[in-house]
Design a protein around this nucleic acid. Structure first.
Lengths: 154, 154
DNA sequence: TATTGTTATACTCTATAACTATA
DNA sequence: TATAGTTATAGAGTATAACAATA
C-alpha cells in the first residue's frame, strides 16, 4: 500500500507554528525603533483607512475586545498619533482621527514593515515569494482568515 | 522605476504571523481528545527519543527553563506517562523514562498530529505541499530554527 | 563552590464584568 | 432597556530568583 495522505518533508503545520512565532516576535522588534508595537501599528493603520470611527467600530473591525481598544487608543493619543473627538451624532461615542504626526509615524512604520518583509523573504527568489504567498494565502483562506486582524495576536 | 524588492501578493511575514497563531491553536485543539497540550506532546516525544535523561538535559534540549520542565514532568508523571527514577551516577538528578502507557499515548497523539497536518494541508495538492514544506524549511533555517523546539511556544 | 531539582514570588498579559453617561 | 466608553478585578501564564540536597 502506498501512503499518499502524508506530506513529504517536515510537517507544514509544524513549520508554520515555529515560523509564525519567530516572525511575530521579529516583526515586533523591527517596529521597535518607531516605539510602536504591532497592535499600535494595526490600529493606527485601521484608523487611517477610515477616520472618525467609534472605538467600538474599531474594536469590532479588528476583532479585539473594546476594553483593549481603550488602552491602545490611550497610548496612541498620549503620543499624539491619534485624537479623540466628539462623535457628530452620538454623544456617548468618540470619533477617532489620525493626526499629521500619526500619518508620518504610520508611513515610517510601514517602511520598517516592508524592510522586515524583505529580510524574512531574502532566502527566496522573487518567483518563489510569489509562489509562497499564493500557497499561504490559500491555507489562510481555508482557515477563515480574512486578512484584517494581522498583528494583534500577542 | 520598477520596484523589484517587494514580494507580490499579501506580505509573507503577515501571512506567517496569522497562520502560525491559528495553526498553533488548532494543533492544541486537535490534541485535546488525548488530554495533552503541545508542550506535553513535545516533552513526551523528546523523552521517548532518548530515555533516562535528566530534567536539566531535557530543559536544555527543548530550550525551556528548568522550572517549567518540572511542572510538565509533574503532569506527565501524574498521568503515569513518564516515570522519574534515580539517576544511576548522580544522586541529585532524576532519570526520566517513558512508561508503556506513555508510549501508547504518544502514538495516539502522533496520529492526531498527522490528521491535523492533513486537515491544514487539504487545500493543497501533494506536489504543492512538497513545495511549501521546502520553502518554509528554507525560511526556518535562515531564522536559525533547528526543528527541535516546536510546540513549546504558547 | 557549583549544580540538580524544586518552590515561591513577582510580573505580564488578558478577558470579564461592573460602572457612568448617554441613547 | 440597551449601548459607548471606561475602569477594576481576577485569571492564566511566565520567568526569576531563592532554597535544600548533592556533587
Amino acid at each position: 500500500m502506498i501512503v499518499t495522505n502524508v506530506s513529504p518533508g517536515p510537517p507544514v503545520a509544524f513549520l508554520l507554528s515555529q515560523l509564525g512565532g519567530v516572525v511575530a516576535r521579529g516583526f515586533a522588534e523591527a517596529l521597535g525603533p518607531m516605539g510602536l508595537e504591532p497592535r499600535h501599528f494595526a490600529v493606527l493603520g485601521f484608523v487611517a483607512a477610515a477616520e472618525g470611527q467609534s472605538q467600538n467600530a474599531l474594536a469590532d473591525g479588528l476583532a479585539i475586545p473594546p476594553s483593549r481598544m481603550v488602552a491602545v487608543i490611550d497610548e496612541l493619543e498620549e503620543r499624539r498619533l491619534v485624537q479623540r473627538r466628539p462623535h457628530p451624532t452620538d454623544r456617548r461615542a468618540r470619533a477617532v482621527h489620525v493626526t499629521p504626526k500619526g500619518r508620518k509615524t504610520l508611513a515610517g512604520a510601514a517602511e520598517l514593515a516592508m524592510a522586515y518583509e524583505a529580510t524574512v523573504c531574502s532566502p527566496l527568489s522573487v518567483g518563489e515569494r510569489t509562489t509562497l504567498s499564493n500557497l499561504l494565502g490559500r491555507l489562510a483562506a481555508a482557515q477563515g482568515l480574512d486578512g484584517v486582524h494581522h498583528a494583534l495576536r500577542g
